[in-house]
């Protein structure tokens, strides 16, 4: 079954891949290791998990203003996620997506963190603001 979500473009582009869903907001500085592309915040539900090459689905960005710089570094070091889908727009998340330069959408008609599961196959058409989700069989 394919679920279709509609929202708006944050960073244009089309990409598809496996979803990695975080129910908790993510810290950039002090929250990820850009060299490894992993979440390092000890109390985080995704502690130790790698987001490289995944469609990162998360409620939003928290913490330091180093957020965008740390995600930009994942692009420079080749550990970036493939695409991003987030619920709440903040300057950290928006600028972070812009400088990571991966297709990104937000303001979807359903909360992506609730309806997308880790392992689902997700196609982001960020140009049209459309997300297609195929449940993991």
């Amino acid at each position: 079954m394919t679920l279709v979500l509609r929202g708006r473009t944050v960073v244009p582009g089309v990409v598809e891949g496996e979803a990695l869903v975080s129910h908790e907001t993510i810290s950039g500085w002090g929250g990820i290791d850009p060299a490894k592309g992993t979440i390092i915040e000890r109390r985080h539900e995704l502690y130790g998990v790698c987001f490289t090459g995944k469609i990162l689905v998360f409620p939003g960005a928290k913490g330091s203003s180093g957020w965008s710089g740390f995600f930009q570094t994942t692009r420079l070091l080749g550990t970036a996620p493939l695409g991003m889908i987030y619920t709440v727009t903040t300057t950290k998340a928006a600028l972070g997506a812009v400088v990571t330069r991966v297709p990104t959408v937000t303001d979807l008609d359903q909360d992506p963190v609730e309806v997308i599961k880790t392992g689902d196959w997700v196609r982001i058409d960020a140009d049209g603001g459309v997300v297609e989700v195929k449940e993991r069989s």
Binding site: S65, G66, S68, G69, T90, T91, K92, L95, V99
Partner: peptide
């Protein structure tokens, strides 16, 4: 940022390195 907005009453978002 939170000090500038709240205590000083200046207006800023939480900007990043590139912005």
């Amino acid at each position: 940022v939170v000090y500038a907005n709240s205590v000083l009453g200046a207006r800023t978002n939480c900007e990043g390195t590139a912005s």
